[in-house]
């Protein structure tokens, strides 16, 4: 374990978020079992009040998760001088087997928390809580992932041991540490990847705008936006980051959030996360368009989600294109 202020902040955030989600789920399960909107019972009244608490808690968890992804990455970056062979976050996360899995599951829980909030907002549009059971089932689904994330993150940080001078010297000497689970940052050929990125982005944006205007093709847009998230991440690794760093060999997806690159990564990743969560949320809400108490509010909300997602993807593409155009690197 490395006693570092940022490590403490990470663990604190993780424990706090998990604690809050478990707390919320405790009441969520009660709602799942006892909810009866027609009843005027005292319990029902109490449960209706609890829904406010749970949605407040989840809103905070969602915000916390978003910040904690970034906190996690730059903690890893801050720790890299402590390990032989680690140049930035990418190396530090590879120090033991739990670094990358934690990051992936962090992204997953963030997305799930975002979906939950979207569902919650949709549910609040109707007077009779039409989606309440679905909402709390989703919450129960999120809990195991949150717990897993906390366990992995603790295992990662507790397992770190700095390579410091030992009394004998005995040091180091390029004893290449066994790479953890290993995580090959796929670096596909730049030119091909750039084509894939721009063509698929064009399709996604067209589909998004089409859905916004005509109200058709929502599921397709949802699937496309989920895929686009993955494609964008791969593109960052493959061809976007080398342009930002102006180094054809540097493909790190983490360094772009650093000070040296004017924190451009924050914008890019936040746009991507927003786009993906809203895009997937669009699809998740489509089946409930027919619910009577939700019309017409839900239809408007879904279209807003779609346009928010499309707008974020468009902004992402615009920033990326600007970066590439203004970069001194020619490939």
């Amino acid at each position: 374990m490395i006693l570092h202020p940022e490590v403490i902040a990470n663990l604190l955030a993780s424990y706090a978020a998990t604690f809050m989600v478990i707390y919320a789920t405790f009441y969520g399960v009660q709602i799942l079992r006892r909810w009866d909107i027609r009843s005027g019972d005292e319990l029902q009244l109490a449960l209706e009040r609890k829904t406010y608490l749970i949605s407040t808690v989840l809103t905070y968890v969602f915000a916390l998760q978003l910040f904690s992804i970034f906190l996690y990455v730059f903690t890893a970056d801050a720790l890299c001088p402590l390990f032989v062979g680690a140049m930035c976050a990418a190396g530090t996360l590879n120090v033991n087997a739990f670094g990358y899995p934690t990051l992936l599951i962090k992204i997953l829980t963030f997305m799930l928390a975002g979906l939950w909030l979207i569902l919650n907002h949709a549910d609040n549009q109707g007077y009779d809580y039409p989606l309440i059971k679905k909402k709390y089932s989703l919450l129960a689904f999120i809990v195991p992932f949150m717990i897993l994330e906390t366990i992995l993150e603790s295992a990662y940080f507790l397992g770190l041991k700095a390579d410091v001078i030992t009394s004998c010297c005995g040091s180091l000497f390029s004893i290449e540490r066994e790479a953890g689970l290993g995580f090959i940052l796929v670096s596909l050929p730049e030119r091909a990847m750039a084509w894939i990125f721009y063509v698929s982005m064009l399709c996604t944006l067209t589909c998004g705008i089409f859905f916004y205007r005509r109200g058709r093709g929502g599921y397709l847009y949802s699937i496309l936006s989920a895929m686009m998230f993955v494609v964008s991440i791969i593109s960052i690794v493959s061809f976007i980051s080398p342009y930002v760093y102006e180094l054809p060999t540097h493909h790190c997806p983490f360094c772009i959030v650093m000070r040296e690159y004017h924190y451009i990564g924050y914008f890019l990743y936040m746009l991507l996360f927003t786009a993906a969560v809203c895009g997937i949320g669009t699809g998740a809400l489509l089946p409930f368009r027919g619910v009577q108490s939700l019309t017409p509010a839900l239809g408007i909300f879904i279209r807003r989600l779609a346009i928010a997602s499309t707008g974020s993807y468009a902004a992402f593409t615009a920033i990326v294109t600007c970066e590439i155009a203004s970069s001194n690197l020619m490939m």
Partner: peptide, 26 residues
């Protein structure tokens, strides 16, 4: 003999000050 590499010194200082900062927070 015992060779001491500059990076090791750097790493050790880093750990010491991390530890001090962390200890403060604890």
């Amino acid at each position: 003999t015992r060779p001491i590499v500059r990076d090791e010194i750097l790493r050790t200082y880093d750990s010491i000050f991390n530890w001090r900062g962390g200890m403060m927070i604890v």
